[in-house]
Amino acid sequence: MASKADRQKTTGRTRHSDHESFLRYRGFLWLKIAFAASFLAILLYGFNHVEPRANGGSAYGYIMGTIGAGLILWLTLLGARKRTITPGRWSLKAWTSAHVYLGLALIVIATLHTGFQFGWNVHTLAYALMMFVIISGIFGITAYSLVPQELSANRGETTQVQMLDNLRMLDRQIHDAAQPLNHDEAEMVQYSLNDDPFAGGLIARLSGNYPKCGTKKALDLIRAAPGRESGYGNDALDQVETLLERKRSSLSRIRKHLRLKALLEVWLYIHVPLTFALIAALFVHIFAVFYYW
């Protein structure tokens, strides 16, 4: 029904932003490359007979070791790529995609490099650190694929700043509504107002459970307060109770928001420092191998 042939292009840009996730980038390109590399490594390992037994000092071992060490350093550079916004036709999505799949391929490459020789030494330490980094990375991928939907659904269209503003507004209203209360009742409300709603450390943040929540305590106390009459508007505590109830639901939303954000970030606090520990161990490993040749 319309003149399609005469349509003008709006912009002259060529678009590089195809709508696909980092995991599916270019039809799983990097997954295929990682599989091919791992398969090749296994194949060569199978055909390569080293006497008395497979070890990192063989020609095959050196090749795998060099590739592995190079990969580790390159994978680390993702952190730099992410933060150095230089001009050019790079895409962080492509980098992440390669990072994930080549990082996983490292399991095969590094393991074959060891020749399955493990012991209580710096060499195995480097290997173990690497495996921990990879495991934390796998946790990260899982979180990245499961949590965003939940995060988006929970926040609706409110931003974190708006959520916190809303909380402050409720506190102000509770404070105002508590003015006519007597001393004992005001004391109950204070539990909520004086509470740091996000106290409880990492465990609370990650679990979303805040057993010492002052608002919950205030609400419980007010509900159990002596002399409450049934029906709304019968005593001064009613309005406070309603506001506290609103604060509690508002709190549960922010806490869920923070829990989900924490899940998306917490693994990085293991992944990144362990990477640096790994690189240190890796250098010691390489130095030791050549020094004590």
Binding site: R7, K9, T10, T11, R13, R15, H16, S17, D18, H19, E20, S21, F22, Y25, K82, I85, P87, G88, R89, W90, S91, L92, K93, W95, T96, Y144, P148
Partner: peptide, 23 residues
């Protein structure tokens, strides 16, 4: 004027950010 185009899209690690023309 920046080679590679919009930084927001290039710098998205997961591919969430996309730029589209409505038609």
């Amino acid at each position: 004027g920046i080679e590679g185009g919009p930084s927001c899209v290039r710098a998205c690690p997961t591919g969430a950010a996309i730029r589209v023309a409505p038609e």
